[in-house]
Amino acid sequence: MPIQTLESLRMLCLELLGLTLTMAGVVVIATYWYFGSFALPAAQGALGFTLLMLFVSALPLQLYAATRIVALRRRNKQLFHIATRDGLTKVLNRAAFQKSVELRIGPDSRRRAEDDVPHTLLVLDADHFKRINDRLGHGTGDEALSLIAATLRMNVRKDDLVGRLGGEEFAVLLRNAGYEEAMIVAERLRSRINMLEVGPRHQRTRLSVSLGGISFKTKVSFEAAYKIADTNLYKAKTSGRNRVTLSQLGTLRSVDGIRPQIEARAQRRA
């Protein structure tokens, strides 16, 4: 059970216990007022029975409230998942991805300067996707998007973010990944996706993606990082597709110039 749920249950039990003790105090005062003292056997019997029933009845109330809290937490988690996930690919939708990125790297994020680590934003787009939809149908196109998303999730770390920005465009935020490591990861993603095929047996079509990215360490808005990554994606598209163009804040280096070395390093890390 999640820690937050356990903490909520603990607080609820303490609140119900406090309420029960308050009610017990009221019973004691009412009994004394009615009988005039606790010396009479009738007063003692009435007080003991009332207090016993009060504490006994509090137990099922606590169990019911605890069950309801757990159920509501589970339902809220399901609703949150539905609201933040892309329905087809199950990765973060654009709004959720952008918000999550801003919380990590944005100017208003709560990261301390000493906690700053390099990040890389990758933006990737499926090559010739319209051709797949037109030749093989939208069902095959949906299959291609799902395969691309699954490949992205399987080839990044748990604390990296994967989202679908819309259509055939995806994005990945790599945490604690500078320029060199991001090039390796980007090439690995490109090559793994390039191994995928979709379509009927007689019309198998190999998938490929073009990637653009930007590596940085300082706080930066999502829109600013995305604009640079998208520009690099355009360069990758216009220079032949199925390739990576990655730059670093303050530099204009591209991964294309050293692609053979990157592919060799990616194979060693895979």
Rank of each mutant, 00 (worst) to 15 (best):
E114T: 08
D115W: 06
R131N: 13
P107L: 05
H119Y: 09
L124S: 08
G137L: 01
D108R: 14
D115V: 01
D127C: 05
D115S: 12
A126H: 00
D125V: 06
L136F: 03
H128N: 14
E102I: 02
I105Q: 07
K130E: 05
R112V: 04
R112Q: 13
G139E: 09
S100Q: 15
P118T: 01
D125F: 04
R135D: 14
G106F: 05
E102R: 09
V123I: 15
H138I: 05
F129T: 00
P107V: 01
H138P: 03
E102Q: 12
R111V: 13
A113G: 04
L136N: 04
R110E: 14
L136V: 07
H138R: 09
H119L: 00
P118W: 03
L124A: 08
Q98F: 04
R131A: 15
P107N: 06
V123D: 02
L136H: 08
P118F: 01
F97T: 06
P118R: 02
L122C: 11
E102F: 05
P107M: 08
E114W: 09
L103P: 00
S100D: 14
E114M: 10
H119A: 00
A126K: 00
R104A: 11
L136Y: 01
I132V: 13
D115E: 15
D127M: 11
H138E: 07
H119F: 12
G106E: 04
H128K: 13
T140Q: 07
G137H: 05
E114P: 00
N133Q: 11
V117R: 14
P107I: 04
E102S: 12
L124E: 08
S109L: 13
F97V: 10
L122V: 07
R110W: 06
R112Y: 08
R131H: 14
V117I: 13
I132F: 07
V101P: 00
F97A: 03
E102D: 14
V123Y: 03
Q98K: 13
Q98E: 15
S109M: 11
G139N: 09
P107F: 02
H119M: 04
P107Q: 09
K99N: 14
R112N: 08
I132Y: 01
A126Y: 02
D127L: 09
V123A: 03
R104H: 11
I132L: 08
T120V: 07
D116P: 00
